[in-house]
Design a protein around this nucleic acid. Sequence first.
DNA 1: CTACGTTACGAAAACCTTTTAGGTGCTTTC
DNA 2: GAAAGCACCTAAAAGGTTTTCGTAACGTAG
Lengths: 333, 333
Amino acid sequence: MTTRRATITDVAALAGVSIATASKALNGRDDVRAETRRLVLDAAARLSFQPNTLARGLLSGQTHTVGLLTGDMVGRFGIPVLLGAENAFGAGEVAVLLCDARGDAIREQHYLRTLLSRRVDGLIVVGESTNPRPSITRNLPVPVVYAYAPSEDPDDVSFVPDDVGGARLAVNHLIATGRSRIAHVTGPADYKAATDRAEGVRQALAEAGLEQAGQTLYGAWSQRWGRHAAEMLLMTDPEVDAVFCGSDQAAAGFIEAIRERGRRVPDDIAVVGYDNWEVLSEETRPTLTTIDPDLEHLGHTAAQHLFAAIDGKATPGVHTLPCRLVIRDSTAP
Amino acid sequence: MTTRRATITDVAALAGVSIATASKALNGRDDVRAETRRLVLDAAARLSFQPNTLARGLLSGQTHTVGLLTGDMVGRFGIPVLLGAENAFGAGEVAVLLCDARGDAIREQHYLRTLLSRRVDGLIVVGESTNPRPSITRNLPVPVVYAYAPSEDPDDVSFVPDDVGGARLAVNHLIATGRSRIAHVTGPADYKAATDRAEGVRQALAEAGLEQAGQTLYGAWSQRWGRHAAEMLLMTDPEVDAVFCGSDQAAAGFIEAIRERGRRVPDDIAVVGYDNWEVLSEETRPTLTTIDPDLEHLGHTAAQHLFAAIDGKATPGVHTLPCRLVIRDSTAP
DNA sequence: CTACGTTACGAAAACCTTTTAGGTGCTTTC
DNA sequence: GAAAGCACCTAAAAGGTTTTCGTAACGTAG
């Protein structure tokens, strides 16, 4: 099994040429006769030669490798971002070094050193919430792009989903389907995602000249909170005809609870969720209209801008990426 | 920002010693006076020197990098395995190159070449189901470990969860809490996970001298199927007093459907799920007793055995790792 | 004083590839 | 017939680090 791997020297020797010629033949450069090239290629194939990327990188200073530093991969939101990024890199012949710091700043520093000593060409930092996070860009010899969680430093390059816009999409859809008593149930108030979405609700209702039904109910992202919020809302605002929930989980709980109390969805109350987490949004009864933050696309975009930054064309600032409305049965007319 | 990075030559020059001495000082070898070492370390710190891992790897032939080749990361099961592996590697100063082949054999070959040309020390292949997958080990110059999906070649090193044992755990728990009319609802019959669990059910019931309530119901892994199966089961075997579901999703649907038909959980019917997918198992009412396949541990173990294989101590064969029973309210006595 | 051992350091080779700067033999041009 | 141009190839350097071996200085034993 572990026979020494063939080097370009072996290939050159077998082909009967110098290593310089072998290199040129293998890399498709001209200055080499067609017949000679065939000779070299044959030799390479016979030895199943694979160029040593390390040597190449050592020479060129470019490793075609990027570091993917995630704060906490256990959560649900980092994964699609990571996936989109990996996809974009893979297509560009760039390899991805994965580092999960697990929310530990010490570990993050450690990984950062590791990545730099491996001479990555760039870094992408994926957060688990949209709350801004400390910048690591200072004094770094490589470009950095932040995805999902933006950097606290506005001069860094960050990509975040447009939570305000997503909420507006949801509310406008509810208005368009004839609802006018619209409530908002969402996650903890210390999540920027929650306050941003609440702001989007405010904007959309104001533009339509409508009053929000009750206060925004901040709680948790869970199904349990959705059930609880439903009970509260049916007591305080019984005439509500639509609810926009800040997560699909809350929406699922909400639907479950109001169904048990005999309200029909969407006939009595229309419900919109957030995240388009399909294991939930396609399994509720009725299936759930929701906002898809398009995280895979976000990861992809972040990766592409990292490429640009590596080529010296950075685009500083916090870039906001649009969400999509996915209409299902919980708001059907 | 992009000032040239310091090399060991710069450090040596600043410290006024040769690069050989600098190297020895930095790597903690003896043959260097304490005072000289301090000089070198100071110089390194002042230049914020970071050794170039590429150069080191080129020389030693060891890159301290492993490839993580996943078949399809979109799914739910690969992620925890990957996480466990990443964790084990990170602790061992080994970096992880992440490649998601997205179920495409061509892409997998491409990634494989990439990884080999980057001179990874080893490879870990993470599958998305427990169905055996084609081996890639043939003629590879580095060791490979398969996690979750075993290799078709029994001489390879594979780690899989013990689905038979997990099912036995579930059924024995039901028997221990006094149930005797136990049914089994699970996923598609072309999943080894489904047939293995069905076999575990058969074994546990046989050992206890009990008959299974009805046939094993093969269907899907979804909530929808759980609901559907509940309706079928209440028709054909109304006296059933416990159900073991092959997934938490099916169990959630099952509970929902029988609650709507007035059966109480666990009083009338006890329910056990599979996967311990906490967003579901802790949100059902009542919360769900389930089998935790301990996938993070599986990934961790696979990584450790890859280390061993790199050191020449491979452990061929398919290794089966135990699952854990997590008791919650859906089976409480 | 010679022979030898020890300690601390330096010179140079090695790892593998790409690129630069020639070099050789041939054909074309005036 | 000489100069110039062309096509094809090679030697050597460069990239950053580790390691092996050599060397110098110094002390100790004979």
